[in-house]
């Protein structure tokens, strides 16, 4: 297990290094010159060179990348802007703030959004899928299957506004989405995020219902389930400890991917509900051409995806003892 984790972590770091290098190269190889943009109309060559130096883009790209990498571990000095402390992912000139600090400010919201909705869609999605698989062919199953088919055809940018219009604007049942830190006021934290959680969960719940149902239906028709029943084990025991255990694997895999993506920013959800999380940060950075910020967000999202992949593979070994981690 330990060896597995070390090996996969090194692999993940290599992938992150490559992803960040690609991102870096693509961003800074663009003909769009950030120095020109901030220099303005009356731009003398001398002041342009000064701005270049201040932005840290007066070196060849590989050298710039090296400085960027070094900054993550030892921090970096931006002349004319200030010092950027040790985990320095760069300096956002549009915000006049280190990238890492801004991301850390926005992260709690995105984490709340991701984990909150994950709790809802796991419980409801998997629960409904289990019931549907148990009541196969009955009314409940057909209803769950149809509802989940409809649910997975919905889009956040449509359902979100429907929910906002009816629940918040017309009926006033739910609060206008907002974010209050959990530590400040748990009640407000909950009520402010309830609508985004529900909307984000609708679509995911549908997918998990479909997945859990089809996996369970497949497992329930396996020979080992019949054998277990024939041995005289109770229906509940067979369902939970045999069939469900076999069905869990693919669900855990998809869950890991989904969670990684969500932490990288539920971009559209945050846009619909005007929540200032990582996703909205990236959209705003695009509008402001804030390349250092975009680079930071991209690397963070890639890190979330890569590390959740490791988490999934490790979880797999617990679920399915046939898989050996080497």
């Amino acid at each position: 297990m330990f060896r597995f984790l070390v090996r996969r972590t090194i692999g993940a770091l290599v992938i992150l290094l490559i992803v960040s290098a690609i991102t870096f190269w693509l961003f800074y190889a663009v003909p769009r010159d950030p120095a020109m943009m901030s220099c303005g109309k009356n731009c003398t060559p001398a002041s342009l060179a000064q701005i270049r130096h201040n932005l840290g883009i007066d070196h060849p790209i590989p050298v710039q990348y090296w400085y960027w990498l070094k900054g993550i571990f030892v921090g970096r000095e931006y002349s004319g802007f200030g010092h950027c402390n040790a985990p320095c992912l760069g300096y956002s000139f549009a915000n006049n703030e280190p990238v890492f600090g801004t991301i850390m400010d926005r992260l709690p919201l995105t984490l709340s959004l991701a984990f909150g909705s994950a709790v809802i869609f796991l419980i409801f999605g998997v629960g409904t899928g289990m019931i549907a698989a148990l009541k196969q062919g009955k009314f409940l199953d057909k209803f769950a299957t149809s509802a989940s088919l409809l649910g997975s055809s919905l889009q956040i940018y449509f359902v979100g506004y429907i929910a906002l219009y009816f629940l918040t604007f017309k009926l006033g049942i739910l609060d206008q989405p907002s974010y209050t830190p959990l530590t400040d006021n748990p009640v407000q934290w909950f009520s402010g995020l309830l609508l985004p959680w529900i909307v984000l969960s609708i679509i995911f719940t549908a997918n998990y219902t479909r997945m859990a149902r089809s996996q369970l239906v497949e497992q329930l028709s396996e020979d080992y389930v019949r054998t277990a029943r024939a041995k005289g084990l109770s229906r509940a025991n067979v369902f939970l400890r045999f069939a469900w255990r076999g069905a869990m694997g693919p669900i855990v895999t998809v869950f890991g991917i989904d969670l990684g993506t969500l932490i990288g920013g539920a971009i559209i959800t945050e846009q619909v509900f005007s929540l200032q999380g990582i996703g909205r940060l990236s959209v705003i950075s695009v509008i402001q051409s804030d390349l250092p910020m975009l680079l930071g967000v991209t690397v963070l999202s890639a890190a979330a995806i890569v590390f959740f992949n490791i988490f999934v593979d490790a979880a797999y070994a617990f679920i399915d003892p046939r898989i050996r981690l080497a």
Binding site: I15, V19, I22, T23, F27, T261, G264, G265, I267, G279, S282, V283, S285, V286, L294, V297, T298, S301, A302, A304, I305, V306, N309
Partner: peptide, 10 residues
Amino acid sequence: SIPSTLFIIA
């Protein structure tokens, strides 16, 4: 492992 939506936006 690249966050595709974010990457395309960026």
